[in-house]
């Protein structure tokens, strides 16, 4: 169950980040977002291959031939990209989570041990941008705060069992970044959930339609 949940987090995050390709606010950032997407995709492929070995399925089967109800990713990663602030706040929340999670699993898990360094790099990048946007202009601050307020409720789902112990470490990473960026930490209220059980937002269906269309139209196609 863990492999599939973490694989799907990485896969769906990769697909969302890849939507920025050729649309980044500047060339360097366009490349950065595509690079991060590539790292996420790399981890997703390794985890899907391992999960598939137990289920008797290939990584392609799992990525391209499951329906939305069979995906186990958290809701946070399937939400639309929104503006650049939404993307960066989402990446901050996600990479802080993935880094902690992979660190916890790393001693006995070679995929996690490999992915942890990449997550640390993503976290650094997201932190730099959240600081710059939050503590930037009036407009960038407004948008960054809106992103934090909108996305915060979705972070609760990340720490559902068996990962409830990680919330504290995550807060220790994320909250000082928000504070330094002059962004207010929202109150804990609404806690949308369901992703780990396959109950997703409508956004996932649309994302999958685009991600899977080629494979479904031409089953087994390879380069």
């Amino acid at each position: 169950m863990n492999d599939l949940a973490l694989a799907d987090d990485a896969l769906i995050a990769a697909q969302r980040l890849a939507e920025w390709c050729s649309r980044g606010p500047e060339l360097e950032e366009d490349i950065a977002l595509a690079n991060i997407a590539l790292d996420q995709l790399g981890t997703a492929r390794l985890l899907l291959t391992r999960a598939g070995a137990e289920l008797g399925r290939t990584e392609d089967d799992l990525a391209y031939l499951r329906t939305d109800r069979e995906f186990r990713n958290c809701l946070l990663v399937e939400l639309p990209n929104g503006d650049f602030a939404v993307t960066m706040v989402k990446l901050l929340f996600l990479s802080a989570y993935q880094k902690l999670l992979y660190e916890t699993l790393a001693p006995e898990d070679d995929i996690a041990a490999k992915a942890v360094k990449e997550s640390a790099y993503h976290l650094d990048h997201a932190t730099l941008w959240v600081l710059r946007l939050g503590d930037g202009t009036e407009e960038s601050h407004r948008r960054a705060q809106q992103a934090v307020d909108d996305l915060w409720p979705y972070t609760h789902e990340l720490f559902e069992p068996p990962f409830e112990a990680l919330r504290e470490g995550w807060s220790v990473t994320v909250e000082p970044v928000l504070a330094e960026a002059t962004l207010a930490r929202p109150e804990d209220r609404w806690r949308p959930t369901g992703g780990r059980a396959g109950v997703h937002t409508e956004h996932l269906s649309r994302l999958l339609a685009e991600m899977q269309v080629l494979h479904r139209a031409h089953p087994g196609a390879t380069w």
């Binding site: 590539l38 790292d39 995709l41 790399g42 995929i111 490999k114 990449e118």
Partner: peptide, 8 residues
């Protein structure tokens, strides 16, 4: 071994 997990 790969340098990065997603190394194409």
């Amino acid at each position: 071994t790969p340098t990065y997990t997603g190394c194409p």
